[in-house]
Simulated scan of single mutants.
Amino acid sequence: MLWSFVASFFVGFGASVAVPNVPEIPGRIVYNIFMSFGTFSLVFILTFFFLTRRTIGYLLRLSEGLEAIAGGDLGYRFPAVREDELGRIAGNINAMAEKLELQIEKERRSEQSKMELITGVSHDLRTPLTSMIGYLELLTAKGYRDESEYDRFVGNAYNKALQLKELIDDLFEYTRLTSHDAKLRLMTVDLNELLGQIEAEFQPLARERGISVETSLPRTPLPMKLDPDKIRRAIDNLLMNALKFSLKPGVVRISLAARDGGGRRTAEIRIENDGRPITREQEERLFERFYKADDSRESSSARGGAGLGLSIARSIARLHGGDIRLRHADGHYDFRIELPAGGASAAEQPESGGYVR
């Protein structure tokens, strides 16, 4: 149909410009016109195909890649070989696939974390409970030889009960701190004085286990707006961690300093001790809930916990708008609590009617 229209057009055109007294265009001229048009069309098609074949091929690759991603292969990536619109489309598809992959990985880790939470809670609660039941069964069956053994069984059962209570308290505290409605009771506190009180209470425990305590505190007050109970809990957890894993005899160092940098003023609390080295992987996981780098590093005289102490300490610091970081090298542990001088972050407002002055 197209060729008929083209032929009619050229025949009509030829008739309109025909030489006078020539009734029609000779067949040879019509043939030449058709040949010229056919040649032009063939050259145009070949040129168009040559110029667009790479684009068409890339479009086909885009289509195949989208099918692969839709089929679940989120690791598929388009090569960055173009800088035009198609290249930008490929880059956007790569970014989309990467985000989807990260989201799925995040959900997988969240599910795995829930399972680890259940496993960790079950294990850490069952261990002291089993011991308590064993001692109580012996006491009920009068399976003790004398009064001294009776007292020892009662004492062991009591200690296991305290351990169980401590584990439950840690779990409750961690759950409360990581919930979205966690609140702080902010008040203006001299952090220097608070740290001095904590150090004085820590001294007898450290002395019993062959650990000496060295402090380096500023001579002037360092007023901070914070929740003193929670900050005390965070520092206590770090000190008990240092006590458990320090080499005996050893030294735990406590220091406090005000820092200015990055356009803001912060307070930095450092707790240092020397213990057995850990791997890089263990170091990266040290603040994970229920994670214990190496139970064999722990002193036999120190009661094991649920692996929540460092997680709780970091959660408290972050509620205040700060953080806790560890610098470890060859068994030297340097925990640093960084707190903003302005108090809690904007997202963490004091409770209504809280103890704020």
Rank of each mutant, 00 (worst) to 15 (best):
L139I: 13
L129I: 09
S179A: 12
I235K: 01
S16T: 05
L102F: 15
R264T: 15
L256T: 05
N32W: 09
L247H: 06
I133P: 07
E166H: 08
L102S: 15
I29G: 06
R303W: 07
D73A: 06
E166T: 14
G87Q: 01
G196H: 03
H180G: 14
N21K: 10
D169L: 12
S131N: 11
A234E: 03
G14A: 12
P223M: 05
A267Q: 11
G342F: 12
E268N: 07
D169V: 13
E147R: 07
G353P: 01
G342M: 06
V17Q: 08
G305L: 01
D295G: 09
H328W: 08
T39S: 14
D170P: 00
L136W: 03
F78G: 02
G304E: 10
S301W: 13
E208A: 03
M115Q: 10
T266W: 00
M115E: 12
R270C: 07
E268A: 12
Y150A: 12
A15T: 10
G12M: 06
A258Y: 00
R176S: 12
Y135C: 08
F49W: 10
S315N: 09
L125C: 05
S311Q: 02
E137M: 14
I235D: 02
E137S: 15
R185V: 04
R126H: 14
R289W: 02
G309C: 02
P26Q: 13
K165P: 01
A95I: 00
H180F: 11
E137Y: 07
A7N: 15
R303M: 15
L339M: 02
G250H: 03
A329G: 04
P26R: 13
A95R: 06
R276S: 09
R77Y: 04
S296E: 11
E101F: 06
A7D: 14
I235E: 14
F44V: 11
S113Y: 11
G14W: 06
L167Y: 02
D229F: 09
S311F: 03
T279P: 07
M187C: 05
F37Y: 14
S296V: 05
R176C: 05
A293D: 04
G38L: 08
T188K: 14
I168F: 08
E193S: 10
G155Y: 00
A258I: 02
I133N: 02
P20K: 03
F287N: 01
F9M: 02
T175L: 11
D323L: 10
E281K: 06
P128G: 03
I29D: 11
Y135D: 15
R289I: 02
G38D: 01
L184R: 12
G343E: 00
D334K: 00
E348I: 13
L217W: 01
S16H: 07
F44L: 13
K225T: 13
R232Y: 05
A68D: 11
H320G: 09
S216N: 09
L162G: 12
G307T: 01
S131Y: 04
L239C: 06
Y158F: 13
R297E: 06
S4K: 13
P350I: 00
A313L: 07
A234F: 04
D169I: 09
R232I: 01
S110A: 08
N32I: 12
P228S: 02
G196D: 10
I69A: 06
G134W: 08
G307Q: 00
N32P: 00
